[in-house]
């Protein structure tokens, strides 16, 4: 079975985000990493691959720098690496179309991705790709397994969690998974360096990306500065804090 995993490279969660000229300055990002939930999607994909004997296809869309992340995915076991090369700033709908077309071309029967990326924090891509592929979508899963011809996934529910069965092409968006993430070993890292990355241009999958005027970025900004807090040493001032919570903040 072909398993597609959608991976996005984002500023590491510890990296500082700086703004210059009203935009986030990507050149100033000290470290780029795989988006945290995507790591769980990848881990689950590797486990599915082990039980089905299938092939794991890692797909990313983004600038040149994102290839490094594909190589990292190969170091833990991704078989095929696909880089959709597009330097333009894409809106979510455009990214979804590119990813969906690539998944379709790869012949994957299951698509795994993160529930939301650490840069956009949106959670649009998985459901959008599922919609375009007319596939099943189960969101925020923590695990996926196969039972005969069905996918069995676990997602949160009002009462805790529930097991969901689906069949046919299915998209799963990952929350934090239940398994430990595997780390690459030296051999994996060496092999990954030799692995070729297939580059796809949007034109090649029949998509022409036009600049769209549907959304205009006005500005990106640092979060509003908070006034310095009122910090008290010791417990003597607790009555005062409680009265401030009531009368100043109006929250209790």
């Amino acid at each position: 079975m072909n398993i597609a995993v959608l991976l996005k490279q984002v500023p590491d969660t510890t990296a500082k985000i700086t703004i210059s000229n009203g935009k986030v300055d990507e050149n100033n990002v000290s470290k780029w990493s795989m988006s945290p939930y995507d790591e769980y999607a990848l881990e689950s994909g590797l486990q599915l691959k082990e039980v089905t004997g299938g092939s794991l296809i890692a797909i990313t869309c983004g600038p040149e720098r994102t290839k490094k992340m594909l190589t990292d995915a190969a170091a833990v076991g991704a078989d095929k690496l696909i880089h959709i090369s597009e330097d333009k700033v894409l809106d979510s709908t455009q990214v979804q179309k590119l990813l969906a077309a690539t998944v379709e071309k790869s012949g994957a029967e299951v698509v795994l991705c993160g529930k939301q990326a650490a840069d956009t924090n949106s959670g649009s891509t998985g459901p959008g790709v599922a919609e375009i592929l007319n596939a099943v979508c189960v969101s925020m899963v923590s695990e996926v397994s196969i039972n005969e011809n069905n996918f069995i996934s676990t997602r949160p529910s009002n009462s805790g969690a529930e097991k969901v069965s689906s069949n046919g092409i299915s998209v799963f968006t990952f929350d934090k998974g239940i398994s430990e993430l595997r780390r690459p070993n030296v051999r994996g890292i060496m092999m990954a360096k030799k692995k070729t990355i297939e580059t796809i241009k949007p034109e090649e999958i029949g998509l022409e990306i036009e600049n769209s005027d549907r959304i205009t970025l006005q500005s990106q900004n640092s979060p509003p500065e908070k006034e310095p807090g009122q910090i008290f040493e010791g417990v003597e001032n607790i009555p005062e804090i409680v009265s401030k919570l009531r009368n100043e903040a109006n929250v209790i």
Binding site: S92, Q96, Q116, G123, S124, P127, G128
Partner: peptide, 22 residues
């Protein structure tokens, strides 16, 4: 909410219109 984000993304994809979350 998780369900709202999912339904929203799917409706946006169906209509081919942008989605802005959160």
């Amino acid at each position: 909410s998780p369900n709202g984000r999912e339904i929203g993304a799917m409706i946006a994809a169906k209509r081919d219109i942008p989605i802005i979350q959160d």
